[in-house]
Design a protein around this nucleic acid. Structure first.
Lengths: 141, 141
DNA sequence: TCGTTTATTTGACTTGTTCCAGAAAACCTG
DNA sequence: CAGGTTTTCTGGAACAAGTCAAATAAACGA
């Protein structure tokens, strides 16, 4: 059983409660940093058949409603997570693409401000730490 | 005339000096944050005809040699710049995709370290500031 | 329950990028 | 400064991620 009440979350965001939406939201909650394809497969395993298009539409709707956050590290397809609003950041493995969360040391979003912001109105500071994950470090020895 | 001696830089990196490489490197130096397509068009304007493939190959070779840096903000095609090695960061406009440089307030790369690095061996901290650029702010009023 | 509104399906299409094989150009050597 | 090697360039095809559009189907409020 899912760790969240997806239907209630959807209703709270004034989104219609449909089987694909519930399944996608629950899947993302249980498997953070999944990409679209992985999500689609998991949802199909549960519901039988869901179009790829539906998965894209659902993920976009959820992202716009603020229920999920879309992250897109260079070289990787889009990934999704349900931790929203806490401005945490990510560790990405250059070798295998694994992603881990790091909480932000500096508090609220945006947690950093650029010295010289060139007149930009900033709303978010996104930090991506690049490196090698423990598994790949072991494998490389 | 270009602001850098592209041929010398190529030789310094033990790369063969070819017309496409010189043109691409000079173009990127003069127009930071250009995407592949823009670079290809500029290079064609100068040399007459260069295959798309050559542009991709050249950019990859230059990136691997450390002469250019590839940046890839979410939702944008890959972009390139010649400022390498100083660990600066980027401001990205959500409306028009414009990119500006910000120098790093915290010194050398990696300029930040994650509190809990989950066993990752980190080598870079990439910071992307998201917001609205001055032009788009004006236009929105 | 009906009807309107909103989702989902289906399938073709765009964009950014890479792969392949042969032709061409740059570099090294004699 | 020619000959042979090695690397790069060309052109075409292929690929993956994601979008668009029209028709069908499902949610929800009256």
């Amino acid at each position: 059983m899912p760790t969240i009440d997806a239907a209630a979350l959807l209703r709270g965001a004034s989104l219609r409660v449909t089987r694909p939406r519930v399944a996608v939201l629950a899947m993302v909650a249980d498997n953070p940093h999944s990409d679209t394809d992985t999500i689609a497969n998991a949802v199909r395993r549960e519901l039988g058949s869901v179009s790829t298009q539906a998965v894209y539409d659902v993920l976009r709707a959820l992202t716009e409603a603020g229920l999920v956050r879309r992250i897109e590290p260079a070289g990787s397809p889009a990934r999704f997570e349900t931790r929203v609003g806490d401005n945490h950041h990510h560790l990405v493995c250059r070798a295998c693409g694994a992603i881990a969360d790091v909480s932000c040391a500096v508090g609220e979003a945006p947690c950093l401000h650029a010295e010289d912001h060139h007149g930009f109105a900033l709303d978010e500071a996104e930090v991506t730490f690049w490196g090698t994950c423990p598994d790949c470090l072991t494998r490389a020895e």
